[in-house]
């Protein structure tokens, strides 16, 4: 059952990601992005990383993409004034680079064997919580300070008078 689900959600994630890039309307891109994020969350669940899956949906699908949608709504470009995308040399090279990257990942994936069978209980809420507050306490706290400074910076930049 697990390989079937893996292929199903993996396919949804990849197709969704391709649609995000190729759709012309930004709102369609945003909705496909949500689909991709959900599929990736499902892949996390398959690897027993329940906490990561929940956080993925809460933070990315539930908050970050909402802000994207918010911006798309406010700018609201009419469909006949959408920018026309052209094939440029840089984009062409980008596609080749992406192809090379996929090839490279495939070669690497064959060389290093992936862990098989059900993953160990490292992705549950309890395990992640314990790891964050013991082994990775310093990194955790430093990250929180970093995020705080980012918030203060954003307010300072956005508000002319504080």
């Amino acid at each position: 059952m697990e390989p079937v689900l893996f292929i199903l959600f993996g396919a949804i994630a990849v197709c969704g990601a391709i649609m995000v890039v190729t759709r012309k309307h930004p709102m369609a891109s945003a909705l496909y992005l949500i689909l991709t994020l959900f599929a990736v969350a499902a892949l996390f669940v398959l690897r027993q990383a329940h906490f990561l899956a929940a956080v993925q949906v809460i933070v990315y699908a539930g908050a970050v993409v909402v802000l994207f949608v918010f911006v798309i709504m406010l700018i609201n470009v009419p469909e006949n004034r959408m920018p026309v995308e052209r094939v440029t040399t840089v984009r062409f090279l980008g596609v080749i680079a992406a192809g090379l990257f996929i090839l490279e990942s495939a070669v690497l994936a064959r060389r290093f064997s992936m862990p098989k069978g059900p993953a160990a209980e490292v992705g549950t809420v309890e395990a992640v919580g314990r790891a964050l507050f013991t082994d990775y306490l310093l990194a955790f706290e430093v990250t929180s300070v970093l995020l705080l400074s980012a918030v203060i910076g954003a307010i300072a930049l956005a508000k002319k008078k504080i």
Binding site: H50, F51, A54, V55, V57, I58, A61, G62, T124, V125
Partner: peptide, 10 residues
Amino acid sequence: LNVGILYLFA
């Protein structure tokens, strides 16, 4: 679910 109420938030 293991994530319980977090699922509801999601």
